[in-house]
Design a protein around this nucleic acid. Structure first.
Length: 982
DNA sequence: TTCTAGTCAATACT
DNA sequence: AGTATTGACTAGAA
């Protein structure tokens, strides 16, 4: 068995992971270790006498916490009844366990880990990563962590636990008696040592490293050790008292066992830097204590190497040295955050990567940190660390590039398509098959670049012409057998002589602005003129599917709205446009495919593996020179459609109407609403959710503007049914005249619920019976009850009452979705906040860009019966949760608007018309195109709109306004009840 | 966990 | 056959 931890006897034999970059810190740690090792020697001696050499382990392997055993011994006052049992009994027991451990010969690493975990549990602290290193003898952990408690001696978990108990009792005592009141982080008086412990780090405040000297509370230690050796109970007893001897700064306390020479400074002191002028001297005893612990615990270390036996350890960041702390003693966190955001955004560095490799934090923490940076003065020492790291990151010019490079290494295929055109690796490959090493190497290479070139010219044509050149050159040379550049089989590093070029990724990141509209227009023209299909273009040039190409070309997003990934296709388009042989290549490819198809038809079974996937145009896969197919072919194994391929749901018209209505009522339905809809429409919740997601996204895209606004009120099923009924009536009156009878008969169907259940298959027409089939009443009520959770009984009756009342007047209501202009889909704030300002269930989608001209439209806001029904997104600013004012996307917002108004106008495409609200509105009125008419800012507004619409309904002669008002009132009552119930 | 952005790919439409 | 639409899914962010 490996002898634990005696190798560092001289104290200088530091494990690598304890080394610090800053030699001062290393010295200090060396000092500590030296002391600890002295203690170890003594301990070792003792243990040898008793025939054991390890004291830390138990049979439970760490899974069963030993804490509970002893936990009853202490009370809040810090008084412990006489420990557990007699020391002799304990000694025997421990000895027994030690022997067991020895015999079991548990690997050192495992012990270390167990130890570490237990320790962390016990202390309620998070251990620094470096302590993860299993190669480090656990004695070092101990002595590093708690030398001030234990004098570096080895302890059993019970011992540690008891000591910690005592420690926490002392903390509590101090907190209670502390008169300073200056530290809000003190444990409250009721602090219970047995309770989950607060993070010690949290107590440290900003004083961690500004400890007063001579803080050494252990003057009874020697004596105790002598009398009781390592008996845990005694340690507990005395450690407890030791804390009461904490002395004010300047007083000298005895040092622990290992501290032999009286004149030597305490290791603690030596760790700690000279006090800063600001706050150290005022630190309370508790703060100082916490600081000690924290300093010890967080004493940074260099990264450790994962042992083969363990899963790879998280990268450990180099420590922040004291000098750095001193250097950055006052940072503008907001400013730092802003700059960091810019960098991350520009280079499309994920928060996860940034967090893990720069800050040592998780993605969530980074997100939080970046979104809500605290002011420097409010931060604790620990809290300041990330900002210091950020600052250092910003100051290091190469840091970004290192990160980008590492991001490539981590997930190249996630960042970039392995672009199709011009000699890049196969398009689609990345989407379907894990990237091959060869591909990786290219990426890494291209990404490990010198600092970024100057910003790209904003004129598309000028994008790095020589890069295009290189691309072309490469692609030409890369395809010996054919001139089509996209041979998947030719992934090779750039020619030796070539300068590393910016990757498309980097170009996307570095290009300041690009007129996407113009590019797509040109592309469309080129494709059209040369009879090149989107499919082949997408696959060969962009590495995208036909559908994606179609979307890109017809609805290009403005540059600034695109993520780096989203920009990439446009860069590729730009490169393609700049390629003099572009059309030629594609034509060639096209011909080849055609040939291949012919051949395939001629020899039906010749290319079996390739044929499996593709049919029709994809049949050419055998050629392996059209990249897209290559990506399919390697699968020869998989080839055919994946086994569990889900069949896509096809919504019926009614389902769509229902969904759109629901969307109008509440674009962000809660779970209950989604479930209700799912049940109502016989769709899965997942499908409903997807639909809402897609719809929000597409609405945003298609209208290029006004944003989906949360509903002012939660989804109301009663209202939903009512309105839906109207809507469907309207719809079917035209399509299916026989539905007109519903007008006389449908009261019941409304009250009992509409069955919108329709087949999920492609059937698009449903019989009357199918559609208005009565629904099981229990289900219905249940569904409704879901939404009136609260005082169910009264709510229920109220709901049904009101719905009955409403339905009695149903005929006077008409939700005319057609009459709602497209722009009604936004709501917001000219009236301060959205009509439903009371609700903030959901974060509204951030306005990314909009066309100011829309603001002038006469109907960007409409008032019906004195109620503002909808507003244009121009008023969005009144909303509560706006995006950061300095967020890049918003900053550029006007830019795009300009470009739309200006430069793009010339190249206006036919599709673009659909971007125009006016057009859309007309369109909506003409044929009720679904996408154009389905947002109402809130349920309330929808109700009002419905009523208002009825005003204009010629059919309703008896639509008396009094009654309508009544209805609305009623409805409101229901709603308010609903709210209360919520 | 849920949202957005970006996609794929099945399907509908021309 | 080409293009548009759209349900579903994934990754990253919040």
């Amino acid at each position: 068995m490996v002898s634990p931890g005696v190798e560092g006897k001289d104290g200088n034999n530091l494990p690598a992971s304890f080394r610090c970059e800053d030699s001062g810190a290393e010295d200090r740690i060396a000092h500590i270790l030296s002391e600890a090792n002295q203690a170890l020697q003594q301990r070792s001696h003792n243990m040898n006498n008793s025939g054991t050499q390890d004291s830390f382990c138990d049979e439970s392997g760490g899974s069963k916490s030993p804490l509970s055993v002893n936990n009853n011994g202490c009370n809040n006052n810090g008084q412990c009844p006489s420990p557990l049992s007699t020391s002799s009994a304990r000694d025997r027991e421990r000895e027994r366990r030690m022997r067991k451990y020895e015999n079991d010969d548990i690997p050192q690493e495992q012990v270390a880990r167990i130890y570490q975990e237990e320790l962390a549990k016990l202390a309620g602290i998070r251990l620094p990563h470096s302590l993860d290193d299993p190669r480090i003898p656990r004695e070092h952990y101990q002595s590093l962590l708690f030398p001030h408690l234990f004098g570096g001696s080895l302890l059993e978990r019970e011992d540690i636990r008891m000591a910690l108990d005592a420690y926490h009792r002392e903390l509590a005592k101090l907190a209670a008696s502390s008169t300073s009141g200056s530290s809000p982080q003190f444990p409250p008086p009721h602090f219970h040592p047995g309770a989950p412990l607060p993070n010690i780090n949290g107590l440290s405040g900003a004083q961690d490293l500004t400890m007063p000297k001579r803080l050494s509370p252990f003057d009874t230690k020697d004596k105790d050790d002598k009398s009781d050796k390592d008996d845990g109970s005694d340690i507990m007893r005395h450690v407890g008292s030791a804390f009461s001897l904490v002395r004010p700064k300047g007083e000298r306390g005895d040092l622990s066992v290992g501290e032999s020479n009286s004149g030597a400074p305490s290791p603690l002191n030596s760790i700690l830097p000279p006090s800063n002028a600001d706050d150290s001297s005022n630190a309370s005893p508790l703060q100082r204590m916490a600081s000690i612990t924290n300093s010890l615990i967080s004493q940074p270390t260099a990264p450790s190497v994962a042992s083969p036996n363990q899963r790879p350890l998280k990268a450990v960041l180099p420590p922040i040295t004291q000098q750095q702390f001193d250097q950055y003693n006052n940072l503008n966190t907001e400013d730092i955050v802003r700059k960091v955001k810019e960098q991350l955004s520009q280079y499309s560095i994920s928060q996860r990567l940034f967090g893990e490799s720069v800050l040592g934090l998780s993605q969530g923490s980074v997100s939080d940190l970046l979104a809500r940076p605290k002011p420097w003065h409010m931060l604790t020492q620990k809290g300041r660390e990330p900002f210091i790291r950020m600052k250092m990151f910003l100051e290091d010019e190469n840091a970004v590039h290192k990160l980008v490079a590492s991001q490539y290494k981590i997930a190249p295929e996630k960042l970039m398509r392995t672009g199709g055109y011009a000699g890049n690796p196969t398009p689609l490959t990345s989407a379907k098959v894990p990237a091959k090493p060869a591909e990786l190497s290219i990426k890494v290479e291209t990404s490990s670049l010198p600092p970024p070139p100057p910003p790209m010219p904003s004129t598309p044509q000028q994008i790095v012409p020589n890069m295009v050149h290189d691309f072309i050159k490469k692609s030409n040379s890369s395809s010996p057998g054919n001139s089509i550049p996209n041979s998947a089989s030719h992934h090779r590093p750039p020619p030796p002589g070539l300068q590393p070029q910016p990757s498309v990724y980097e170009m996307a990141a570095l290009t300041q602005d690009l007129d996407t509209q113009l590019i797509t227009t040109k592309i469309k023209e080129a494709l059209l003129a040369n009879n090149i299909g989107q499919k082949i273009f997408g696959e060969a040039v962009l590495g995208l599917s036909q559908g994606s190409v179609s979307e890109l070309l017809s609805k290009p997003k403005p540059w600034h709205m695109l993520s780096i990934k989203g920009r990439e296709p446009f860069i590729r388009m730009q490169l393609w446009l700049a390629d003099p042989l572009n059309v030629e290549r594609l034509q060639h490819l096209k011909n080849e495919r055609r040939e291949a198809n012919k051949r395939k038809r001629g020899l039906p079974h010749s290319n079996s593996p390739m044929d499996a996937y593709g049919s029709g145009t994809q049949g050419s896969s055998d050629n392996s020179n059209d990249s897209p197919n290559d990506s399919y072919s390697p699968g020869s194994s998989n080839a055919a459609a994946p086994p569990n391929k889900k069949q896509r749901v096809l919504f019926s018209e009614e389902q769509k109407e229902a969904l759109k209505l629901a969307f109008a009522l509440d674009p962000y339905p809660n779970i209950a609403a989604i479930e209700f809809l799912a049940r109502e429409l016989a769709l899965s919740s997942r499908t409903i959710t997807n639909w809402f997601h897609n719809h929000r996204m597409r609405l945003k895209q298609q209208t290029s503007s006004p944003l989906v606004q949360e509903a002012s009120q939660p989804f109301d099923p009663v209202q939903f049914r009512l309105l839906l009924h109207q809507r469907l009536l309207e719809l079917h009156k035209d399509k299916f005249p026989m539905f007109s009878f519903m007008g006389q008969q449908s009261d019941q169907s409304i009250e009992e619920g509409l069955d919108l259940t329709v087949s999920n298959t492609a059937s698009r027409v449903h019989s009357d019976d199918d559609f208005f089939e009565e629904e099981d009443e229990d289900d219905d009520n249940e569904a409704i009850a879901t939404f009136f959770s609260g005082s169910v009984a009264s709510e229920d009756s109220c709901a049904s009452n009101s719905s009955r009342t409403l339905h009695r007047k149903r005929k006077s209501l008409s939700l005319s979705m057609n009459s709602l202009p497209e722009k009604s889909m936004s709501a917001g704030g000219k009236h301060g906040v959205a009509p439903g300002s009371g609700s903030s269930r959901r974060k509204p989608v951030a306005p990314q860009w909009f066309n100011p001209s829309w603001h002038d439209d006469s109907d960007d806001e409409e008032v019906i019966n004195g109620v503002c029904v909808f507003q244009n997104a121009i008023n969005y600013s009144g909303n509560k949760e706006r995006p950061e004012p300095n967020s890049p996307s918003e900053a550029v917002k006007p830019k795009y608007v300009d470009s739309r108004e200006g430069s793009i106008v010339g190249g206006k495409s036919d599709e673009e018309e659909s971007h125009e609200p006016q057009e859309a509105k007309v369109k909506a009125e003409k044929e009720s195109t679904p996408e154009q008419k389905d947002i109402i800012p809130g349920a309330h507004a929808a109700t009002v709109a419905a009523v208002a619409a009825a005003d204009d309904d010629e059919e309703e002669e008896d639509g008396d306004k009094e009654e309508k008002r009544e209805q609305v009132q009623l409805k409101e009552e229901v709603e308010s009840d609903d709210e209360n119930g919520d």
